[in-house]
Simulated scan of single mutants.
Amino acid sequence: MSSPQAVPVFDGHNDVLLRLKLSGHPSPERLFVDGDTVGHIDLPRAKKGGLAGGLCAIFVPSPQGFDANRDFIAPEQTQALATTLGMASLLFRIEAASNGGLKVCRSAADIRNAMADGAFASVLHFEGVEAFNTDLDALHVLHQSGLRSLGPVWSRPNSFAYGVPFRFPSTPDIGPGLTDAGKRLVKTCNELKVLVDLSHMNEQGFWDIAKITDAPLVASHSNAHTLCNHSRNLTDRQLDAIRDSGGLAGINFGVLFMRQDGVKNPDTDLSELVRHVDYMVDRMGIDHVAMGSDFDGTTIPAAMKDASDLQMLVNALRDAGYDQASLDKICHGNWIRVLEKTWGA
């Protein structure tokens, strides 16, 4: 019996640009185009695993590095802007070096065309907007350069919102929500047709955005809090609001966001991911669940070592009873629909 046909995956979140920037390689764009042995994503591994594209995040690390046991400090704005421009430049250099293998997409039509051509459909996304002053001048300029999606915060306070710290066990109801500048940011994103990502928002910030925005609610890489009570996950009430807005939530592959014990243990079965998909589909409906891997940004199940193994998850979903139409929606259709509704094209 022949193997089932691969289902193309458009993914809600990856951190490959940061991994490449930190590699120290003199031409990091070549690592992506030619292939690498580090991390989760490059062009050859994406093609092998059916990863057809996704939101490529620009994230500026905190000055003290990553320590999930402490609260994070945001980088200074001038340094954050310089780092952001460097990583955006890297994405455009990858596009130039790829000979058509990667396309920076600015519309849903661009994504469809790139996928049809076998190109990696990349969307420029900011995970935290520490690069912006509250005047938002940089937002307007960077939107012209291709920025189509942003999360106001990563898991730390900035000028626009509080962000949800990494805590387990914990609800996401930690701290205040949007500042006045954050409310202006959301309204300006609506005007520019830039997606506002709710992952890494605390609960108050989530509801502040829900009151303001005229776009579908989207959490690009967050799981079900009922199944794993990590502060980064979504409560049932939040899942209901996403559904009612016509939005989506992207399933995060990070083991600490899916396990009931909240432990970062790579020896975690893919059935844990399927469990979150099942729960969120039951709660929100098949039209509102998608992929949000967090490739190159988190510890994923060891059985799925990188993007080349992505069809393992697709097959696990198929074995769990998802038919082809449902797989198409979860793997790419829901993202393209919501982006088209948000961007207007």
Score class of each variant (00 low, 15 high):
residue 230 H to P: 02
residue 299 T to Y: 01
residue 243 R to Q: 14
residue 305 K to N: 10
residue 301 P to G: 02
residue 245 S to Q: 06
residue 286 I to Q: 03
residue 299 T to N: 01
residue 242 I to G: 06
residue 289 V to A: 14
residue 255 V to Q: 00
residue 215 A to M: 15
residue 222 S to M: 07
residue 225 H to C: 09
residue 270 L to S: 06
residue 293 S to T: 04
residue 241 A to Q: 12
residue 261 D to F: 00
residue 315 N to R: 14
residue 269 D to T: 03
residue 308 S to V: 02
residue 265 N to V: 04
residue 278 D to M: 14
residue 267 D to I: 00
residue 293 S to P: 02
residue 239 L to Y: 08
residue 268 T to V: 05
residue 282 D to L: 09
residue 273 L to V: 10
residue 256 L to V: 10
residue 247 G to M: 07
residue 257 F to S: 11
residue 274 V to L: 00
residue 258 M to H: 10
residue 270 L to E: 02
residue 254 G to L: 12
residue 235 T to Y: 08
residue 256 L to P: 03
residue 219 A to N: 12
residue 294 D to Y: 09
residue 276 H to S: 00
residue 218 V to F: 13
residue 215 A to G: 08
residue 312 M to E: 13
residue 263 V to Q: 13
residue 223 N to C: 06
residue 315 N to D: 15
residue 235 T to I: 08
residue 299 T to R: 01
residue 253 F to R: 01
residue 215 A to D: 11
residue 295 F to N: 11
residue 222 S to V: 04
residue 256 L to M: 15
residue 297 G to P: 07
residue 312 M to S: 11
residue 299 T to G: 02
residue 238 Q to F: 06
residue 307 A to G: 01
residue 253 F to L: 13
residue 290 A to F: 13
residue 307 A to N: 04
residue 291 M to E: 07
residue 242 I to P: 01
residue 283 R to E: 13
residue 280 M to F: 10
residue 319 D to A: 15
residue 311 Q to S: 08
residue 315 N to Y: 15
residue 318 R to G: 08
residue 234 L to A: 09
residue 236 D to E: 15
residue 299 T to V: 14
residue 223 N to F: 02
residue 275 R to S: 12
residue 250 G to L: 01
residue 242 I to Q: 11
residue 220 S to E: 15
residue 260 Q to S: 15
residue 232 R to I: 05
residue 313 L to C: 05
residue 247 G to I: 03
residue 242 I to N: 03
residue 226 T to P: 03
residue 235 T to G: 09
residue 261 D to N: 02
residue 230 H to L: 07
residue 217 L to A: 03
residue 282 D to S: 14
residue 225 H to Q: 13
residue 277 V to E: 08
residue 255 V to R: 00
residue 240 D to F: 12
residue 242 I to A: 11
residue 273 L to T: 08
residue 263 V to E: 14
residue 243 R to F: 14
residue 290 A to H: 09
residue 233 N to S: 08
residue 278 D to V: 09
residue 266 P to M: 00
residue 227 L to Y: 10
residue 265 N to C: 09
residue 279 Y to K: 11
residue 240 D to C: 08
residue 267 D to Q: 02
residue 230 H to W: 02
residue 291 M to Y: 15
residue 220 S to R: 08
residue 313 L to F: 15
